[in-house]
Design a protein around this nucleic acid. Structure first.
Lengths: 335, 335
DNA sequence: AGCTCTTTTGGTAACGTTCCCGACAACGAT
DNA sequence: ATCGTTGTCGGGAACGTTACCAAAAGAGCT
């Protein structure tokens, strides 16, 4: 039950492999009758060209690679759906890998993808990644690359991001306008690009409304499961904020749960707003205000950018960054 | 900036390709000095063997393929994490594909995977898949295969599933014991294996407690976004159930939202329990009772099974089905 | 000296495909 | 009749790697 090859067809029809090859590609220099013969035989025997042999010869694969930290994260799975939507329409397969927030895994994934000659790579950096030499390397090799959401300023590449500053600014300003003064910000590791942008938005809103920035109200959380809980507990005991603004899907949930576990009323005692793509936000108790990133559209845009550079509709040298607006959904949790 | 090959090394060191190849594989029949020379040069030039060439030659790839309907579904992303955990430890890459509940996409993904010579395939069937000839085909070709969660009785293969019957039975019985009599069951398309099993569990619980089975209380929902909402609205108007038991992640959420949108109190007017792996169940309003599938463990078990057959620690012919217990988490929504 | 036996290396085919080059008719034009 | 042209086809190399079969040289033996 081995797969049939071009050689098998050639032998069966008493032709040469080159003739068969050309017949299958519908070359003009093949006799229509021969062509028909070959095509019919191929159809009958369920012939499929061996993509590996093709990749070896042509150094391409009609597939693009996607590396995200964690598909269980709503933002990323939605972004992937955006990516698949355009890739599929344009005839590309999408190969999905997770870095699990590990730089080593990320490097290994990159290795695997370029080794297998994907035509391009879409990546959102792991929370551990500071050194981006692996990206620089594939870029030097000429592999088209687009970084989305979690980008890095250590490398010049095509990028697609949400307007994190705007989202954070709006969220914070909303909390201020609803009368809150001690607004805590629970956020991701400080080296992430998104972390910085959101922090800036947060600061800018404070400044605009004359509220002094208090370092003790900002807490960076790693990816350990219990970390956010601890941080929130401590925060509620010591700084006693009257509002909490969290970055990231994961932190929003963990923090939300922690505040409730402490028996603190939302929004009466503490207002809450999260930077998250949770689809159940409106079903929570109380319904959670969110800053939503246009995940699907980010994925779509990034994939379009990548495919355009792959197909040379877009020059590789002129890198650019596309910023997509975020959306604020106000619900009960923030008044 | 092209990748370096064995030929390049051979030329540079004035050796034959076969010698270089053997030196790199640390063959015993190579002079230690030559070996050292080659290894050092390879290290220096950052040589990596071309996996495509290897696959072409050896018909394998040290990668396994996973096909799931939708990674945005918690159950599947958790299962994938289980799969990756064992695959990574055993030196395999995991290539993830989504069928988006489309049989055609599923077939295309299968094609791509076997074409690219993955060493085995893990799959959970799309909601549309009735004809499993594509699976039969790859099984005939000798590609190791494990089906998990959404299995099919039209093909004999290694399978890993949750104990859907038990979960549904327990959920239904719990609703009965808490005094409910008109228990609706909102479930997935009837052709899915999980649908049938859960329905059987539901029926069995009814029967045990002498409640007649009412066909009108069972509703099958497709994958359209608004479908569950419509079904719930109609159900609440006509049959007026005093409890709802839903299958699947998606249906639990959509139904839950629909009931709330109708202004019906949970659990006072209608008790609610869902078959779901939602991580936020305890944060909902009211906290949602759930039957939880051991997603991670299902993935882990399936991957182990697959890798064992790949590495011939397990015979291909003796197929078996592993069933893993579900867990019931009772919360406010069901009293 | 002639023989076999190791040790170490090289050459080549093969995996499946495409592409370049050339071969060989048949044909019309000079 | 000779010459280019056109239409069809086959042969071979190449992509990067490994496996098999030789081959050469030296060592040790009778």
């Amino acid at each position: 039950m081995e797969a049939i090859t071009i050689k098998d067809i050639a032998k069966a029809l008493n032709l040469s492999t080159s003739t068969v090859s050309r017949a299958l590609r519908n070359s003009y220099e093949i006799n229509p009758e021969t062509k028909k013969l070959v095509l019919e035989y191929a159809e009958k025997t369920n012939y499929h060209p061996n993509p590996i042999a093709l990749s070896l010869k042509e150094n391409r694969s009609k597939a693009i690679g996607v590396i995200v930290p964690e598909i269980a994260n709503n933002f990323f799975s939605q972004a992937i759906n955006g990516i698949e939507a355009v890739a599929y329409n344009r005839g590309y397969h999408v190969v999905i890998f997770q870095s699990h927030e590990s730089c080593e895994r990320e490097r290994s994934n990159i290795q695997h993808l370029v080794g297998r000659k994907v035509d391009g790579v879409l990546i959102s950096l792991s929370g551990e990644t500071t050194d981006v030499s692996h990206l620089q390397e594939i870029q030097n090799k000429g592999v088209p690359l687009v970084i989305f959401d979690r980008i890095s300023n250590k490398i010049e590449a095509n990028e697609v991001i949400a307007d994190n500053f705007q989202g954070a600014f709006q969220a914070t300003e909303h909390l201020i306008l609803s009368g809150r003064k001690k607004i805590a910000h629970i956020t991701s590791p400080s080296l992430l690009y998104t972390t910085k942008e959101r922090l800036e938005g947060y600061k800018a809103a404070l400044e605009k409304h004359g509220i002094p920035f208090d370092e003790d109200l900002v807490h960076y959380c790693g990816f350990a499961p219990e970390e956010a809980r601890q941080v929130i507990f401590e925060l509620l005991d010591k700084q006693k904020p009257d509002a909490i603004f969290t970055a990231s899907d994961r932190l929003a949930l963990d923090s939300f749960a922690a505040v409730k576990a402490k028996g603190i009323n939302i929004p009466e005692q503490v207002a809450f707003i999260g930077f998250t793509n949770l689809q159940v936000a409106h079903l929570l108790d109380p319904p959670l205000s969110t800053v939503v990133q246009p995940a699907f559209e980010i994925g779509r845009t990034a994939a379009e950018m990548l495919l355009n550079t792959i197909e040379n509709k877009q020059s590789i040298t002129a890198v650019k960054t596309i910023k997509i607006p975020t959306e604020v959904n106000l619900r009960t949790s923030s008044n």
